[in-house]
């Protein structure tokens, strides 16, 4: 177990180092000159030269890289060229907002995906199963930005049930301001007992979270189906049935418990999909998160912000996958041997 843990951790560190090398290299092959971007379009050549020295761009690449990593781990992620604020400060504001959206979406896809998957497995090759397959393939084929627009058209414009975007209604934000504690609006509002903020936040979450959940819902459904089918074919299930246990008990107490592990993997994987998916969904729903920040940074060629967000999201992805792997090793002794 310890050898496995060490190997997995080392690999995680290696991946993060690789991620930093890639983002660094990318930022250095930007066609435009970072120093020129920093001083602005009307700067004189000597000002550009000074900026280049200040930013350390006149040093050899490996020195620049070492400096970049050194500063990075100390929390100096550079200053955004667009907002002129430290990237880390910007990210601290926007990350919890994206994380809230992703968490709710992931929760939705697990809560709906596991029963769908079980239903699909127990009614294998009948119409619920076919429907679930078509639904799953549609999920991975769906352009999320388009699905978001369609939902806005139906639920905002036609039915007028839900808001078109944003994180909270403006009047609620002004009349019932929320003190950020966790950065999750739902939690903060619940903790403060701020009822109007809680309902407004919840209502604003529905469409973006549903859009985002669709792709991962498909993954969770298919994975649960496959896992349940595999477990149902095994001897201990036959034994349980032969002992006369009710089918419901066999399914939920014996089969599902053993189908949890592959499903767990897919939840970990889904996190990555959702994290990248938020970039598109946040733009559509005007959600003030990391995705909106990233897209604004992309348009402004704000490379410190692009690097910071890329590194942060990749780190979160690596850590989640690591956590999932370790959790698997804890739950299932067979994993450790592999």
């Amino acid at each position: 177990m310890r050898a496995y843990l060490v190997r997995r951790l080392l690999l995680g560190v290696l991946v993060l180092l690789g991620v930093s090398v890639i983002t660094f290299t990318l930022a250095r092959i930007v066609p435009s000159d970072p120093a020129a971007l920093w001083v602005g379009p009307r700067a004189r050549p000597d000002q550009v030269a000074r900026a280049r020295a200040e930013l350390g761009l006149d040093q050899p690449l490996h020195v620049q890289y070492a400096r970049y990593v050194g500063k990075f781990v100390q929390g100096d992620w550079g200053v955004s060229l667009r907002t002129r604020r430290p990237v880390l400060d910007d990210v601290k504001v926007f990350f919890p907002s994206s994380l809230e959206l992703v968490t709710v979406a992931l929760g939705l896809s697990v809560v709906a995906g596991i029963p769908f998957g079980v239903m699909s497995a127990t009614r294998r090759d009948r119409w619920p199963d076919h429907l679930s397959r078509l639904f799953a393939i549609s999920g991975v084929s769906m352009p999320l930005f388009w699905l978001g627009l369609l939902l806005q058209l139906v639920f905002f414009r036609t039915l007028r049930w839900l808001p078109v975007g944003g994180r909270m209604a403006t009047e609620v934000r002004l009349l019932h301001p929320l003190e950020p504690v966790t950065g999750f609006n739902l939690l903060d509002a619940a903790l403060a007992g701020n009822w109007p903020a809680l309902t407004s936040s919840a209502v604003h979450l529905i469409l973006p979270a549903a859009t985002l959940a669709y792709a991962s819902l498909a993954l969770v459904t298919r994975m649960t189906r496959a896992a349940v089918l595999e477990v149902l074919a095994q001897d201990f299930i036959r034994t349980a049935r032969a002992m006369g246990l009710p089918e419901r008990r066999v399914l939920y107490r014996h089969a599902l418990k053993n189908a949890v592990i592959p499903t767990l993997t897919v939840v970990g994987l889904s996190f990555g999909y959702l994290m990248a998916g938020t970039f598109l969904v946040e733009v559509i729903f005007n959600w003030p998160g990391l995705g909106s920040y990233m897209v604004a940074a992309i348009i402004a060629v704000d490379y410190p912000a692009i690097m910071g967000v890329t590194f942060l999201v990749a780190t979160a992805y690596v850590l989640i996958n690591l956590a999932v792997d370790l959790l698997q090793a804890v739950i299932d002794p067979r994993v450790r041997l592999g």
């Binding site: 690789g18 991620v19 990248a276 940074a297 490379y303 890329t310 999201v313």
Partner: peptide
């Protein structure tokens, strides 16, 4: 290990970063 590093990015994110730069 190189493939590990590249697959260590969430899909779309790396493409987004590369394309933007």
């Amino acid at each position: 290990r190189l493939t590990d590093v590249f697959l260590g990015f969430p899909p779309l994110l790396l493409a987004l970063a590369v394309a933007s730069l």
